[in-house]
Simulated assay, not measured.
Amino acid sequence: MQREVLVVGYDGAVLTDIAGPVDVFDGAGKVCGGYRVRLAAVGGGFAVSGGLRMEAEDLRDVAAGVDTVLVAGGTAFEAAAADPELRRHLRRVADGARRVGSVCTGAFVLAGAGLLDGARVTTHWAFCDRLAAENPSVEVVPDAIHVRDGRVVTSAGVTAGIDLALALVEQDHGARLARLVARWMVVFLQRPGGQSQFSVRSRVPPVRERGLRDLLDAIADDPAASWTVEGMARRAAMSPRHFARVFPRRVGVPPARYVERVRVEAAAGVLESGDEGLDVVARRCGFGSAETMRRAFQRVLGVTPGGYRHRFRTTGAA
């Protein structure tokens, strides 16, 4: 069965938001014949970032019945979200679609059309707070690469659209085809939806205490070290009591939770790129045992280490 994927653009849309998912679905379609990709905008052709002009169908002429509707993000998302004609025809074609989604700030366009009410979604990190403030009925997940909530699928900025499209191909046709398309495009299979848009260390707000900054860098450099609260306090040149108060205020989570997240991130990288046993990975990344690592993965990513490796390994099986 061939599924029609309709990518919706507008003047000022970001080219990568369009080209990334289009290439994924087109590549998968060439292998399995499972997709037909279409590009549409109100009025037909439109200009994307960089001044290039895209040929497209007129969204006003697109009949209902497409399988997946995906709206691109762009610098002009505010105007697109406020365009009554775009909102009306987007609602019309989305009404019967199996999936409705967005890349980056395309989430604002979906929200403007009333298609995100009550849904869990994400968008580019720089616009998550704004999306939540302007749409109180929407639950914004601020740190996800992509989020699937029923038929609503949304992704973070720019290249995250490729991750989302690969996840949808995997949902439709299995991990083998998604891996094949990813390898052909010379990208990782896909970052899991629950994975952060940034590394654990880079998400920490600026820290003024030099000792605390040095500690955070040291944990990122060597997550497998024995990071006890007392040892971390000494490294940060603070008393344990003062450290226990300051760390959550500056970093946003307690020390043990932060170390756990760094270790999960390190283990995820090992699982993606190698074939070492889970016990070996656990010891290498500071968990001590595979069971401890399993519980940490479930808390942080909502998936087991084995399940993570099966879905996101970037080496080995095609």
Rank of each mutant, 00 (worst) to 15 (best):
G33M: 10
G43D: 11
A28N: 14
V42K: 10
D58P: 10
V42Q: 09
V24Q: 03
V66G: 05
G34Y: 05
G45C: 03
D26L: 15
M54G: 01
Y35K: 01
A28D: 15
V31A: 14
V31R: 15
G50C: 11
A47T: 14
A40I: 02
A63S: 14
V24C: 10
A56E: 08
V48S: 04
Y35T: 06
V48K: 00
R53L: 11
G45I: 09
K30F: 13
D23V: 00
L59F: 06
A63I: 04
G51M: 10
G65E: 04
V31S: 12
A63K: 11
M54W: 12
E57Y: 08
V42R: 03
K30S: 13
Y35N: 03
A28F: 11
V42P: 02
L59H: 00
L39R: 04
V24R: 00
V66N: 06
A63N: 09
V48E: 01
E57M: 12
R36C: 12
G34H: 02
R36A: 14
Y35G: 08
A28R: 15
L39E: 01
G33V: 12
A40G: 05
C32K: 09
D23P: 01
V66C: 07
R36I: 09
V48G: 07
R38K: 12
A47P: 00
G33I: 11
S49P: 00
V42L: 09
V48C: 07
A47N: 01
F25H: 08
D23K: 10
A63R: 15
G65Y: 02
A63F: 03
V66K: 00
A41V: 03
D58C: 10
G65K: 06
G65T: 02
Y35L: 09
V62P: 04
A40C: 06
V24K: 02
D61L: 08
G29S: 07
E57L: 14
L39F: 08
G65V: 01
A64S: 13
D67Q: 05
R38T: 01
A28M: 12
C32G: 10
E57V: 03
A64R: 12
F25W: 14
F46D: 04
G51F: 04
D58E: 02
D23N: 11
G34R: 06
D61Y: 01
A56I: 07
S49L: 05
D23E: 15
V62F: 03
L52F: 09
A41P: 06
F46E: 05
V37L: 09
A64I: 07
V37A: 08
E55C: 09
L39D: 05
G34W: 04
K30M: 14
G45N: 08
R53T: 13
A63M: 08
G33E: 07
A56Q: 07
L59S: 03
E55W: 00
L59M: 04
S49Q: 12
R36D: 11
F25T: 13
A64F: 08
L59R: 02
T68L: 15
R60M: 02
C32H: 00
E57S: 08
L59D: 03
A28W: 13
G44M: 09
A40V: 05
K30G: 15
G34I: 06
A28T: 13
V37Q: 10
D26Y: 13
R53P: 01
G33D: 07
L59V: 06
R36P: 02
D61V: 01
R38S: 10
L59T: 01
V62R: 04
V48P: 00
M54I: 14
V31T: 13
A28C: 12
G43C: 11
